[in-house]
Design a protein around this nucleic acid. Structure first.
Lengths: 205, 205
DNA sequence: TAGATTGTTAATCGATTAACAATC
DNA sequence: TAGATTGTTAATCGATTAACAATC
């Protein structure tokens, strides 16, 4: 394991490798090569080898990578060889869709807290959980020791809620609100904004 | 306007500038600087100036950028100074959430076609529209001349539907299925996978 | 005018690719 | 063994930053 600083751009590709390898594993494939994996994810074989080799020698000359083994190492590196509890703030359409999303469980995540500031939604059941008042957000998140939040509130509330989340000890925010938010160093933000993603493609049309 | 090839990484930042500038404009601000915009979006002032200057001289020394003017130019460049009709395939929870999403209209997009292969969903009303059968996808998309699709089908169906979309003339796919899809050159794909985004942050926790 | 800020150049920094010895 | 593929080095390529003349 190389203890030096790994560039964020490499960290960003690892979940994509992980996803593709899991897909291969689910189909019963036991071994793959940088060439083959590269074709699946659209990244050059040289880059995949270089990325993976930052963390150790996980392959074998002549045969490539054992998928199960590489999956384990990537999960370790990304710290998803465990389940992270996540808080979800904003029970609109997107919040509801995420609360029912099946794709978290086997990828290392579980939504354990749901919040909304609309009193008519507070107390409603969401699966085994109950929607809590955003006013109690800090207290509840601290109590559970949760570090990750998903933000699905209207853009007008996003910065304010983000500030509360940071105060509550949240270190990673997946922001669905179509607005840039400011957080202190040490807090990570990822953005999911469908219009921004679409606008990135229209240029080429 | 510089006619040379603009790097994709710059194109990817323009929608972020556009979003932030729109937010400023909505709050009545008329002028901004690369410094100020940079603080909002978390990008260096030098980079913002360099990015924008690829397309022309849109600023004024001493005063910065007129927001309304820059908004217009960015919309032109990204081709969102019009409304693009979009097709949505897969009326699960995510498809429904997107069908009700208010954030497309003023960003250049409008969902005009809805598809599902579940016969119990075909014929259901979605706002002013009716869910159509995925089997008729190619015909309907061609008829409307639609170039952009959002894919919210289960991962097992994603590649097959993507192939149909490409055959139907789709040139840009926003893929919500947690799987890499292969498309021919000239077709753009953007990925929205919440677990992948979260896994990109857990490394730092 | 004086102050502010752009657009652009050159320097720096970082990422990707090509190539190949090592080796399974 | 012969063929395949890794891990790694060096070369190339591209992106970012710093600095500043131009100018509003």
């Amino acid at each position: 394991m190389n203890a030096e600083k790994i560039p964020d751009i490499i960290i960003g590709r690892l979940p994509i490798y992980l996803r593709a390898l899991q897909h291969m594993f689910d189909r019963g494939i036991q071994t793959t090569s940088s060439q083959e994996l590269g074709e699946v994810v659209g990244i050059s074989a040289a880059q995949i080898r270089k990325d993976i080799s930052q963390f150790g020698e996980f392959g074998k000359q002549g045969t490539g990578y054992n998928i199960q083994f590489l999956l384990g190492r990537l999960r370790e590196i990304l710290k998803v060889n465990r389940t992270w509890e996540v808080a979800l703030v904003g029970m609109g359409d997107m919040g509801h869709a995420l609360s029912r999303y099946q794709g978290f469980a086997n990828r290392g995540f579980h939504i354990a807290l749901f919040f909304d500031n609309d009193q008519s939604k507070v107390g409603q059941k969401v699966g085994d959980f109950v929607v809590k008042d955003t006013a109690d957000l800090a207290e509840e998140i601290r109590k559970e020791g949760i570090k990750i939040a998903m933000l699905t509130v209207p853009p007008s509330a996003a910065q304010e809620v983000a500030d509360q989340l940071v105060k509550a000890g949240i270190k990673a925010i997946l922001n669905y609100s179509p607005i840039s938010i400011n957080v202190p160093p040490g807090v990570k933000v990822q953005y999911i904004d469908p219009s921004t993603h679409l606008q990135r493609m229209t240029y080429y049309l």
